[in-house]
Amino acid sequence: MSPKYFWVERLMAFRPRLWISTHGALLPLGLALLLLTAMFTPGFLSAPNLLSLVNTASVIGCVAVAMMLITISGNVLSFALGVTTGCSAMMFAWLTGYESGLLATVGALVFSTVVTGFQGLLIGLFRANPIIVSIAALGLMTGAAELISQGSMIYASGSQLQGLNDTFWSVPASGWVLLALVLLADFILRFTRFGRNIVMLGSNMTAAKAAGISLWRTTVGVYALAGLFSGIAGILLAARYNAGSLEYGIGYDYSAIAAVLVGGTFIGGGEGTALRTLAGLVVITGAGAILLLHGVSTEYQFLFTGLVLLVAVLVQGR
C-alpha cells in the first residue's frame, strides 16, 4: 500500500459509520439541549425575558421563513433579505408621515415585494446566479438608502403602530404575525400548485422544466413572496422602535440562515417546512438568549452561531 494513500483509505473506511446519516437529527438534539440549559438558567423562563425573546425572534422568524422559501426553491440563500427588511422599515416610517397606517403598510410591502421579485426575475429568466444577484441587490439597496436618507434614521409619526406592540393572550402581536406567516408558508408549500412547483423546482430543476413547470414564473413568485415576508418583518421593526433605519436589518439574514439550516431545510433545495424552520429559530434565538443571560458577550454569540451553521451544513454533506 502506498503510504500517501494510507490515511485516505482509512478515512474512507470509517466515513459511513462516523457520519450522522440524517440531517433531521440536529433539530431534536438542539431542542433538547436548549430545554435542558434553559431549566438551569435563572431568569430565562421569566415573563419579561420570554416577551423580549418573542419580540426579537418574531422579526428574525419572518426573514427566516422568507429565506427558507428561497432555499427550498433551489436558490440556496439571499444576502439581500436583511437589507430589504431595513429598507421596508424606513419606507414604512417615512410613509407614516402621511397619517395613514394603511398607506404605510401597503407601501412598505409593495416595495419589498417588487424589489425582491425583480431579483427573482433576473434569476429565473436570465439564469443569473442567485447568490451574486442577492449580493448585488444588497449593495444597490444599501447605497440607495444611504443616499436618500443621508445616513440618518427616519422617525415614524402617528399612533397607527400601537396595535403592533400590544399583547394578545399574553403573546405580543409580532409573535402572532410570525405564527400566521409560518402557517401560511406551510399551507402554500403543501396545498397549492404554486407551492408544489417551488418544491419540485428545488428538488430537480431539469426535471421540473421537462414536466412543464415555468421556471421564471415560479422563481419570480417565490422571491416576491420572500420579499413580502421580509417587508412584514420590516414593519414589525418600525413599529417596535417607532422609526426606520438601515441598521435594523443588519445580521438578520445571518440568524435566518442559521434557523433555516438548523430546522433541517436541505440547502440544495426541495426539502423543508416552515414549522421546522420555526423550531430551528427557537433553538438559535433561545441559545443566544441563554448565552446573554450567562453574561457571554455578543462576540461569543457570533462565534456560537458560526459554529452551529458549520455543524448544520456539515451534517447535510452527502
Binding site: R196, M200, S203, N204, A207, A210, A211
Partner: peptide, 24 residues
C-alpha cells in the same frame, strides 16, 4: 427521459408526488 435521476423524476420527493407532478 432516459436520465431518470437528472431529468425524469424528483428523487427526494414521494412516489405519490411524482405521479401527480404533471397532472396537478
Amino acid at each position: 427521459s432516459e436520465d431518470r435521476a437528472g431529468e425524469g423524476l424528483f428523487l427526494n420527493l414521494s412516489v405519490e408526488e411524482n405521479f401527480a407532478a404533471t397532472q396537478f
